[in-house]
Design a protein around this nucleic acid. Structure first.
Length: 393
RNA sequence: GCGGGCGUAGCGUAGUGGUUAACGCGUCUGGUUGUGGCCCAGAAGAUCGCGGGUUCGAACCCCGCCGCUCGCC
């Protein structure tokens, strides 16, 4: 299996924006890249052909979910996950470490692995680094994640240190179990800068094909999220791809690329899409809002997704008001296309060495509407004689 | 025509003498970050069918009227 990353633009500063190309047997991934999430071997509500048309190079699937149902061995017998879901491009799988942490019941973590109960039927399972890798190998993915020990965001230094040391040991077991798989190292450490830096340095010494930053965007403040991201990217080698797991929103993508991140995955575009929230350059728009009832314009006139190129906001509004499935699909496609297009725009800006200007302009326009909404809310409170910015007691 | 039942927010209902009339849906507005389409949070909205009476106090008790509904001629 081939896996290679080459930078195509950007400086040698490890905490600065860059573009690149990841080469795999199933094609190239140009970076910065947004990876649509297809947890259960489906990007919810949309076909792989439609996902391909958004311009996404790579999809994400989840080993924990596919292990529990329908089973990695079954998918293996059917020719692997690419064939199963009909996606010929690269696929990255998450190991399931996060899901064991967030979904499963009765977790018991030992040095060997983690015993947990399925969130589906309560059945008991023992998930080990070796099993996580066997699952991902059976799926036949192009990039794998090691099993990591995920801990709550507010964990103490001691607990975070213990978890990251275990994650390091598990990483070595994962690579030994499936040496042929391109398996990234996941950097943990909670919100403790010294641990983050230490983990990044130790993982760098292991010469991983790429580095994932885990355990962020789980409730910590944005300030500490970006501080941790910088701490980690500063300690990572420039010539390897960096993947910020589970992030993010359009603002997050811009902020992360500015700090040298190359890859993202996030459920936000599809989850928000299913709930009627659409990304635009002027902030989020809730298509259910009454102001769109008769709006003949597309969501975003500069967008080339199926909804924006042919349909009005009034129609999308109508679909959502009636809980029509087509609405979920069109909104998901728009949001994915929006994030993919955002990565395209950022790549252009990096190549032309004007990323900072792009980022400033983007933030100004994207936050303008939020400011307006906040202002209107404040006016309403003031009009009711309530102190601005407070809630009813 | 006679007899019964019912009229409470846009809809469906709760409240049968005691603070400021409650709930669900709907409406309006936020939220959602290594995915269950859910869910969470907040807001607006009611001259309790109309008129009169009893009472310190009425959505609630009494009378009349109006409307809907069921049954019987």
């Amino acid at each position: 299996m081939t896996f290679a990353f080459r930078r195509t633009a950007g400086s040698a500063d490890p905490v600065s924006p860059r573009t690149g190309v990841i080469s795999t047997d199933r094609g190239d991934i140009v970076t910065p890249a947004f990876m649509p999430v297809g947890t259960l071997a489906t990007v919810k509500t949309v076909s792989t052909r439609e996902v391909r048309e958004t311009g996404a190079d790579v999809l994400l699937v989840n080993a924990y979910h596919l292990y529990l149902r329908p089973g990695h061995e079954l998918i293996g017998r059917l020719g692997g996950v690419h064939r199963f879901m009909d996606w010929s491009g690269p696929i990255l799988s998450d190991s399931g470490g996060f899901q064991v942490f967030s979904l499963a019941g009765l977790r018991k973590i030992t040095e060997d692995g983690v015993r947990f109960r399925s969130h589906i039927d309560g059945s008991e399972h023992f998930y080990t680094p070796e099993l996580a890798m066997a699952v991902q190998a059976a799926l036949g993915v192009d990039i794998a994640m090691p099993l990591d020990h995920v801990i709550p965001g507010e964990s103490t230094h001691e607990a975070a240190k213990d978890a990251l040391e275990r994650t390091l040991r598990w990483y070595e077991r994962c690579r030994a179990a499936e040496p042929g798989l391109a398996t990234f190292a996941i950097i943990q450490g909670g919100i403790h800068p010294d641990l983050r830096a230490m983990h990044a340095r130790e993982a760098t010494a292991l010469d991983a094909p790429g580095y994932s930053i885990g355990g962020l965007s789980v409730g910590e403040s944005k300030d500490s999220m970006w501080a941790m991201t910088e701490t980690v990217t500063r300690a990572l080698p420039v010539e390897k791809p960096r993947y910020l797991m589970g992030v993010g929103s359009p603002e997050d993508l811009v902020n992360a690329v500015g700090r040298g991140i190359d890859m993202f995955d996030c459920v936000l575009p599809t989850r928000l899409g299913r709930n009627g929230t659409l990304f635009t350059d002027h902030g989020r728009a809730n298509i259910r809002n009454a102001r769109f009832r008769e709006d003949p314009n597309p969501i975003d006139s500069s967008c080339d997704c199926p909804a924006c190129s042919r349909l009005s906001m009034a129609y999308l509004h109508h679909l959502f008001r009636n809980d029509e499935i087509l609405g979920y699909r069109l909104a998901s496609l728009h949001n994915i296309r929006y994030l993919v297009r955002l990565t395209e725009r950022m790549r252009g800006a990096i190549q032309e060495d004007r990323f900072d200007d792009f980022a400033d302009e983007f933030r100004g326009a994207y936050n303008a509407v939020d400011e307006k909404v906040r202002h209107e809310q404040k006016e309403k409170w003031v009009a009711r004689g309530r102190p601005a910015g407070t809630r009813k007691a």
